[in-house]
Design a protein around this nucleic acid. Structure first.
Lengths: 199, 199
DNA sequence: GGAATTATATACCGATCGGTACAAAAAATC
DNA sequence: GATTTTTTGTACCGATCGGTATATAATTCC
């Protein structure tokens, strides 16, 4: 009952995600948002609560769609393939033609005022969570004898995430996908490729 | 002649640098600046022009002091040592006890509103310049047979800068220096260490 | 066709943004 | 000591910030 909504919530959220991704949380004004989403401020507040709530919902959407490759990669049977898929997945997301460059989880609020401290904390925790999950996957790999010798699983996880965060900055600075791929190839050089009889 | 200035310009600039480093260009308000520097707005505008001018002067100071290791590292005779010193130099600067975490050149304006577009462009160009200089140093190394085989000098430079930008995000997310050092060790693993008779 | 409910549009809120006008204060010059 | 020059403190500027009060429009329930 009541007057029906005149806009598509999912579509509006997609636009908000793109704006926050490109301009960051504080760099995106309510005017940017309402004009981009094609709705008025009362509509925005009615559906999403406030700016912070909208950002968090946009981040959730980002994780569910653009970062879906991550959890998929964790299911690969060989650790080296896990690492490769994660690195390429990040590079792809950071350089997709129709999307902003770089990573929303970094662009969102890397350095900001006190007003955005809660968002910043949330994004940091987000990064930690991903790194922790990858670390646990590599722990399993270690138990299976599936890691290059001489490395702690969680150090390897931090290494992979550091490369991905580095390529996020590179992408935000204009680097194209092929350049990032070459970086990734170098970063994985110490990690033995799978020989055919391994699989 | 005229009334003497009541504050130390260099000291004030140091404070502005720290603020911009920690909160970014747009995240730092004029109130933050004047309160932190202990001066009034007319004094700030009299000496530094405006907020943008102040940021650029603070960035200049940052490059001259905190990034001094970079050009020093380029003068090392062996490319592997150049890479090592640059990576450790960045990690040190990103995790210094008394300074903000991460890198001012990235924290300053990674994603921002249109109002900061000029600053953002300037910081991107800054990153490109460093990468270009390192690439040229590695070109020299290639001519001297001082590179690991199978790598383009400028790809190697991008690789080193990507790692450093990755550790900048890690530092901004709370990683300590030792953790970054372990990442750097892994990143350099494919690059042959110098044996004693090489030097 | 009301009554109730929800979404819309307009117009507004106090606070803060970067930046400045103006006059008093503190020094050097004559 | 008067004049000139520069810095300082105060008080203010228009614009924009995130957020909301209010009334009207559009639907369902009865």
């Amino acid at each position: 009952m009541g007057r029906p909504r005149e806009f598509d919530v999912d579509e509006a959220l997609e636009t908000a995600m793109e704006l926050f991704w490109r301009k960051g949380y504080e760099g995106t004004s309510l005017t940017d948002l309402t004009e981009g989403m094609g709705i008025t401020k009362p509509s925005l507040y009615g559906v999403f609560g406030n700016k912070e709530g909208l950002f968090l919902k946009a981040l959730e959407r980002y994780e569910r769609t653009k970062m879906a490759f991550f959890h998929k990669a964790l299911e690969e049977p060989r650790a080296r393939i896990v690492a490769e898929k994660i690195l390429h997945g990040f590079a792809d997301a950071q350089t997709a033609d129709k999307d902003p460059s770089g990573c929303m989880g970094i662009n969102g609020a890397l350095a900001c005022s006190e007003a955005a401290a809660e968002i910043q904390k949330c994004l940091i925790e987000n990064r930690h969570r991903g790194e922790r999950e990858l670390g646990r996957r590599f722990e399993r790999a270690a138990a299976e004898g599936d890691l290059p010798p001489g490395h702690e699983p969680h150090d390897l996880a931090r290494y992979i995430m550091t490369i991905s965060q580095g390529t996020a900055i590179q992408a935000a600075s204009g680097a194209d996908r092929q350049a990032l791929y070459r970086v990734i190839d170098m970063a994985l050089q110490f990690w033995p490729e799978l020989s055919p009889q391994d699989s």
